[in-house]
Simulated assay, not measured.
Amino acid sequence: MAGHPVEVYFEFVPLGRQVKVVAIDAASGVEVSIVAPAGASQRDMETIALRKLTKRLTDLAEGA
């Protein structure tokens, strides 16, 4: 199922007026991060991080 994470862990780290969001694929351990405004909704931050993680997994599966 490369490119489509089944179980993802999210970590939220406040950085002043921003939040660093780390998305980790449980199966492979691949992780990506984004930085978002602290006022953004958690759901929006998770959606963006998940899209980035999916893209990264797809790239790895394709050998990029």
Rank of each mutant, 00 (worst) to 15 (best):
G16Q: 01
T58Q: 15
V19Y: 01
D44R: 01
M1L: 11
Q18H: 04
S28K: 09
L15N: 14
D25G: 06
A61K: 05
T47A: 13
Y9W: 08
H4D: 04
A49N: 01
S33I: 10
G16L: 06
G29R: 00
V35S: 11
L57W: 01
D25N: 09
Q42P: 03
E11S: 01
P37D: 01
G63M: 10
A2C: 13
V32R: 05
L60E: 12
T58P: 14
T47F: 09
A38M: 10
P37H: 00
P5T: 10
L53R: 07
I24C: 12
V30P: 05
R43E: 15
G63E: 11
E62V: 08
I48L: 09
I24L: 14
R51I: 15
F10E: 05
S33M: 12
R56I: 02
V8M: 03
D59T: 11
R56P: 00
V32Y: 06
G39R: 14
Q42I: 04
A27G: 07
A40P: 13
E46M: 05
V22T: 13
F10N: 05
A40G: 13
A38S: 10
I24N: 12
G29A: 12
Q18D: 09
P37I: 04
A26I: 06
V19E: 03
E7M: 05
A36F: 01
I24Y: 08
V8P: 03
P37M: 09
I24P: 09
P5G: 08
R17Y: 02
L53F: 12
G63D: 05
T47R: 10
T54H: 15
S33Y: 14
L57C: 07
A49R: 03
P5F: 02
V19K: 02
V13I: 11
E7G: 00
A49C: 11
L53E: 10
G16S: 06
Y9F: 14
E7W: 05
T58Y: 14
V21F: 03
T58K: 15
A23F: 00
V13P: 02
I24T: 15
M1I: 09
D25M: 08
Q42E: 11
G39V: 14
A36C: 12
V21E: 00
V35L: 12
V6N: 11
V30D: 04
H4C: 00
E62I: 07
P5S: 02
A40C: 15
E7H: 11
T58M: 15
P5W: 02
T54E: 15
G3Q: 05
V35T: 13
E62C: 01
V19W: 07
A27C: 01
A49F: 06
G3L: 07
L50M: 13
S41T: 02
L15W: 13
A23H: 02
A49M: 07
R17H: 05
